[in-house]
């Protein structure tokens, strides 16, 4: 029965078993809980959801999360492409360590990153003191949130761009140079356009991660309503007050942002596959 899904008969065994296991676990662990949120939203009603989202405090939190996540992802786009370039093209002592360090934000628990960044950038912290001397407060302001979101999103652009750079042919650069282009012109007109789909995918992944980030942000944010209160924190607050409907409404708004970004990532990948196919 399961083989009805197959495009063609396969001599490989285990389709029923592995597919059955995959679908079962996907349904129980991921789809059923998300379905519960959507059901809650449906019974609460679109009008009520909008009423919750439209409250100044919710709106401020959603806008703050999205705006700072976008700024952090933009920073990571530029810094990440540069970092990938340095890691792939240059040979220097400590390159392996630098390469390994890129993955640290993935492996380090967010709460650990949160308390460490707060300790560093608090007004009495090692770096915070320096900035405080310049009259610039980082921790407990939006700058702190920006910093934490850069930290969690850092690996995405590097790790999507790196493989593309590694497989990129030197011949196109040589051709460009032979035809008289300067190095900067070659980078701008030849290399960066080739990296664009991968870089944008990394940007979208970094953005998706940063919009929903909670653990690393709440310590450094200060959490002042309307100013430094992120959307996930507002969900936690609503749950602590047993306002399940309001929590679900904000959750659905965030899920909508996630789905939109996921759709964008998939479209970008289709686009990049088509571009590579054209070359």
């Amino acid at each position: 029965m399961t083989s009805a899904f197959l495009r063609q008969r396969s001599p490989m065994p285990g389709f029923g078993l592995t597919m059955g296991l995959t679908i079962t676990m996907l349904s129980l662990i991921v789809l059923l809980p998300i379905g519960a949120l959507l059901c809650k939203g449906a019974s609460f009603g679109a009008g009520n959801i909008w009423e919750v989202v439209n409250r100044p405090r919710t709106w401020a939190a959603l806008f703050l999360s999205f705006r700072l996540a976008a700024f952090a992802a933009l920073f990571n786009l530029v810094f990440g492409v540069m970092l990938a370039w340095v890691l792939v093209r240059y040979r220097f002592p400590g390159r392996r360590i630098l390469d390994a360090a890129v993955d640290l934000p993935f492996a380090l628990p967010t709460a650990v990153a949160g308390i460490a960044l707060t300790t560093l950038y608090a007004p009495n912290g090692v770096f915070g003191q320096v900035f405080a001397g310049l009259g610039w407060r980082i921790a407990y302001t939006q700058w702190g949130i920006f910093l934490a979101l850069i930290f969690v999103g850092l690996p995405f652009v590097v790790r999507t761009v790196q493989p593309v750079l590694e497989t990129m042919d030197h011949e196109v650069e040589e051709a460009s140079a032979t035809l008289g282009a300067g190095r900067w012109l070659t980078i701008r007109r030849i290399i960066l356009p080739m990296l664009l789909p991968a870089a944008l995918t990394g940007f979208a992944l970094s953005l998706a991660r940063a919009v929903g980030e909670y653990g690393s942000v709440i310590f450094i944010a200060g959490n002042i309503p309307l100013k430094t209160e992120i959307a996930p924190l507002l969900i936690v607050i609503q749950l602590e007050e047993f306002n399940y409907d309001a929590a679900a409404a904000i959750g659905i708004a965030m899920l909508a942002i996630s789905f939109t970004l996921l759709l964008a990532i998939n479209l970008l990948q289709i686009w990049s596959r088509r571009r590579i196919g054209d070359v």
């Binding site: 991660r209 929903g212 909670y214 653990g215 959307a231 936690v236 959750g251 970004l261 996921l262």
Partner: peptide, 9 residues
């Protein structure tokens, strides 16, 4: 999908 969903959600 879980990579794109906020842990809090």
């Amino acid at each position: 999908l879980p990579f794109s969903v906020s842990p809090v959600v």
